[in-house]
Design a protein around this nucleic acid. Structure first.
Lengths: 200, 200
DNA sequence: GTCGTAAGCAAGCACCCACTTGCAAAAGTG
DNA sequence: CACTTTTGCAAGTGGGTGCTTGCTTACGAC
């Protein structure tokens, strides 16, 4: 079954480059180094091939995790945001395609959204833990802050190549600034702050 | 020349819905209520029609402006961000398409990017003015903060319909939270703060 | 051996696509 | 009226596209 997986990966690659309509069965077969008929014998239809491709090898990247017990929020968040950004960059073109073709192929978009949604949940929970462990005093809308950091990193990863002027350079410094600003917005004091009412 | 403009608008609409490859000359002609040949007589090529369509009636929306002299940063920013969000929502599908087809049609993406780039410049300057007028003490990276607010609003406008769970609801409250958080990150004190070293 | 399964090759079908040609109907301008 | 411009209609061309059919080759299991 080696051909099958090769076809799936090739289909995902071609789809990312050319979209649904541009992903002709001939092109995918060429990309996979396989005869076109093999596609129809294995999957029956171009449609099922592409759907399986996006669902399986689409965005199967492992979830980047944040620590269960926050110790150094700035360092932890910076590392997480950096990894998130590079992961988005990897699946960038695929996500762009899925987003733009959502009306025509909703299932593809649904598959592509799983990554960002898991990231958002992870970050939201982490901010909640920051509160639990006393890094944040007073109540704070964790959902809004999470949406901001993820939205910022997402927009940076998606738009920097097309509009480099509107983002700080270099990338590492930009992510550092985003992290710092979000923590300041959340009222987390400077790096190395000690939890004051930590319960664990 | 009424047909010509009608064709341009129809082409932009069809392109937003179906992308470049899906924008067949027949579909555009039908959408405009015009014979297909008229397209080729007026524009010669499908390619020039679509490029002219995106360049002209693509995102010609008037720039949303921020006040030259900031008085109430929270109110001003909130109003601006709200307008920006609804403007992005209007041109959402068109921008999605242009973004995803950037490799194949760079000029379309370039046209689509003008809006966000102008918005970023406007916000960046405004944050600079906040500093000039004493709303912010100490130096602050205006570019990063501007990228954050715009990135957040952009991501909210683009992703909320597909992933409503990761954004605060309702929309108005979300934008309000984004504004508040960005101002807190910038060190602008609460609503109604008075400029302390205003020079004008 | 032989039998089922997966893969290849060549050809083709019906349809869609961008674009062309030839000709006729308007519609405004001198 | 004559003349130009614009638009419409009908038909067609060469090429791409999803998918099918018929036939052949390799390979592992029994």
């Amino acid at each position: 079954m080696e051909r099958r997986e090769e076809l799936l990966r090739a289909a995902a690659r071609v789809y990312a480059r050319h979209g649904y309509r541009g992903s002709t069965t001939r092109r995918i077969a060429d990309e996979a180094g396989v005869n076109e008929i093999t596609i129809f014998r294995q999957f029956g239809t171009k449609d099922t091939l592409i759907h399986e491709a996006i669902a399986s090898c689409g965005m199967s990247g492992p979830l980047v995790e944040l620590p269960k017990v926050p110790v150094d929020p700035h360092t932890e968040l910076l590392q997480w945001a950096t990894k998130l950004r590079s992961h988005i960059c990897t699946t960038r073109s695929l996500m762009r395609r899925c987003m733009s073709e959502r009306d025509e192929h909703p299932q593809l978009s649904a598959s592509a959204n799983r990554g960002p949604m898991r990231a958002a949940a992870e970050l939201q929970n982490y901010i909640g833990r920051l509160q639990t462990h006393g890094f944040i005093t007073g109540d704070v809308e964790a959902k809004a802050a999470a949406a901001m950091l993820i939205g910022t990193v997402f927009s940076d990863a998606m738009g920097r190549d097309a509009m480099p002027d509107i983002y700080p350079s270099p990338v590492a410094a930009a992510v550092e600034l985003y992290t710092t600003l979000i923590l300041r917005a959340l009222g987390v004091s400077a790096v190395g702050a000690h939890p004051i009412g930590a319960s664990v």
